[in-house]
Structure formats: structure tokens, C-alpha cells
Amino acid sequence: MKITVIGGTGLIGSQLVHTLRAAGHEVVAASLSSGVDLLTGAGLDQALAGADTVVNVTNSPTFDAASPDFFRTTMGNLLAAGERAGVRHQVILSIVGVDQVPQLDYYRAKTLQEDLLKQGSTPYSIVRATQFFEFMDAVLSWAADDRTVRLPSTPLQPMAAADVVAALADVTTGAPLNAAVDVAGPEVFALDELGRLTLAARKDPRTVVTDERAGMFAAVEGKVLTAGPDARLAPTPYRAWLATPR
């Protein structure tokens, strides 16, 4: 199978390219560095030439009110190029519960991306993943100083990027779902608890203070960012991931 990975040099994309190639597929890693610009459409026709499937794991450069325009433009360009190339399966990476948090600009933008994909003429699959373990450092930095880290108690079900890649590879090489599938980590944590586990594992002396108004996830109500009963659960626990040298 010939597969084009849009965003093929990023955290998820680079691992996905490696995984698919190791499985014997012909893979094109498309990114700005290879001359492919989703915003302008430059290089897309060449990157998708002969592709059976295209996987889009690109991200908006900002998480603010500009992100809907990014996804509107890039999804339109990718769908049009895919139709010209005869692509038979379009896959995107999205977020568990993304349509349940309309108060966040970025989540509204990702919901728009999903809707545009569904409205296209090409069979599709949407892989909705929970938050990545690898992003905890960024989350800890949102409301922190030298002594404290303020986090809400929002329930999360995070997962390792490697497990996201495995789920993406499975969906990418299968038949189009024409639906979304949720993938999530094996455990649910309150975000402030995750912060304490992370700081303790790294011997960081700062204290986590529970603050329901701190950071982006303060806008999330209830358990909408945790997976439902039909989700595919990843194998890697957070504590084991923390203990693994990188």
C-alpha cells in the first residue's frame, strides 16, 4: 500500500512513517521541509500521486481563534488534492471529546476539521486520541512559578505517543471506518494528581496546588476528555512510561 503521511516529520508523524515502512508499506513523509504546504496547497499533488491512503497529523500553529481558519483551509486543500489523486482513504488524528468542549477555540477548530472530512467525497477514518504523556511538561508550564504548579482536577485518560501511533497505523492500513474511533490510555487520573506523579518522578520540588481555574483544561466540565466504553485502550501505564529512560 502507498501511504502519504502529512506532517510526517513531527512527534506522531515521524513514528508513524517508521512503523508503516517497517510493515512493508511505501510511505511518503510530507511536510514543510519536503516542500508540502497545506495552507497554500503547494506540493500536495506530488506528495499524493499514486497514494492509496493519506494520513493527516498536522497541527495548527496556534491554539487560539486563528485555528479554525487553519483547519478550514488545510482540510479543503487536502480533500481537493486527494480527489485529484484518486486517494481512497483519508485519515485524521483528532481528540477524544473534542466536540464536547465548544468553549475552547482549538477544540472547535478540530471539530470543524472532522466535519469537513465527513462532508468530503472520500471514505475516511477519524482516530480520536486522549492527551499524550509527552505533553505533560507543557501542561505543567501553563500556570506555574518556581515554587508551585497550579492545575485543575479535570479527569484525563492520557496515553503514550507510541500507542497513538500503533492505533493510527492499524486504522490507516485497514478499511475506511467512515466514523470516529476513540483510543485512550489504560488509566484515568485527575490532572492535579498527574502533576504530582510527574513532579515526584522527576524529583521536582515544586508543589501542585489544585486550582479549578488554572490552565486550558479548567474550561472542561465533567469527564468528556475520558474515553467511553467502546474505546480502544492502549497498553502503556503512565507510571511505567515515567520510569522508562528516554
Results as ranks from 00 to 15, higher is better:
Val91Trp: 10
Gln100Thr: 09
Val96Glu: 01
Leu104Ile: 15
Gln90Trp: 14
Glu114His: 05
Ser121Glu: 13
Pro102Tyr: 09
Gly97Leu: 08
Leu112Cys: 06
Val98Tyr: 00
Val98Gln: 00
Leu117Ile: 12
Ala109Arg: 00
Asp115Arg: 15
Lys118Ala: 14
Gly120His: 04
Tyr106Arg: 06
Glu114Asp: 12
Asp99Met: 03
Leu104Val: 14
Leu117Phe: 03
Leu117Cys: 10
Asp115His: 13
Pro102Ile: 05
Ala109Leu: 06
Tyr107Glu: 06
Leu112Glu: 14
Gly120Pro: 02
Ser94Ala: 03
Gln119Arg: 13
Pro102Ala: 04
Leu117Tyr: 08
Pro102Leu: 08
Pro123Arg: 05
Gln119Ile: 03
Ile92Asp: 01
Gln113Ile: 04
Leu93Met: 15
Gln100His: 15
Lys118Met: 13
Gly120Trp: 08
Gln113Tyr: 11
His89Pro: 03
Ala109His: 03
Ala109Trp: 05
His89Gln: 13
Leu104Ser: 14
Asp99Glu: 13
Gly97Glu: 02
Asp105Gly: 05
Gln90Arg: 14
Ile95Glu: 01
Tyr107Phe: 15
His89Asp: 07
Ser94Lys: 04
Arg108Lys: 13
Ile95Trp: 04
Leu93Val: 08
Val98Asn: 01
Leu112Tyr: 12
Ile95Lys: 02
Asp99Tyr: 01
Pro123Leu: 12
Leu104Ala: 09
Glu114Ser: 03
Asp115Tyr: 08
Gly120Ala: 10
Pro102Asn: 10
Thr122Gly: 07
Gln103Phe: 01
Thr122Asn: 11
Leu117Arg: 02
Leu117Trp: 07
Val96Asn: 07
Ser94Gly: 07
Asp115Trp: 08
Tyr106Ala: 01
Gln100Tyr: 04
Tyr107Asn: 05
Asp105Phe: 14
Gln103Ala: 12
Pro123Asn: 11
Thr111Glu: 07
Gln119Tyr: 09
Leu117Asn: 00
Val91Pro: 07
Asp105Val: 02
Gln113Gly: 13
Pro123Thr: 11
Lys118Phe: 09
Leu112Val: 14
Gly97Ser: 04
Asp105Leu: 10
Ser94Tyr: 01
Asp99Lys: 11
Val96Asp: 01
Val91Leu: 14
Leu104Glu: 03
Gln119Trp: 02
Leu116Tyr: 09
Thr111Ala: 15
Ala109Thr: 05
Asp99Ala: 12
Lys118Thr: 13
Leu116Val: 11
Val101Trp: 00
Ile95His: 03
Pro102Val: 06
His89Ala: 06
Lys110Cys: 02
Leu104Phe: 07
Leu112Met: 13
Leu104Gly: 04
Gln113Val: 08
Asp115Val: 10
Ala109Tyr: 03
Thr122Val: 15
Glu114Gln: 14
Val96Pro: 00
Asp115Ile: 10
Tyr107Lys: 02
Lys110Asp: 06
Thr122Pro: 07
Lys110Val: 13
Val91Phe: 07
Gln103Asp: 12
Gly97Met: 06
Gln100Ala: 14
Gln90Glu: 15
Thr122Trp: 05
Asp105Ser: 13
Gln119Pro: 07
Gln100Arg: 15
His89Cys: 09
Ser121Trp: 04
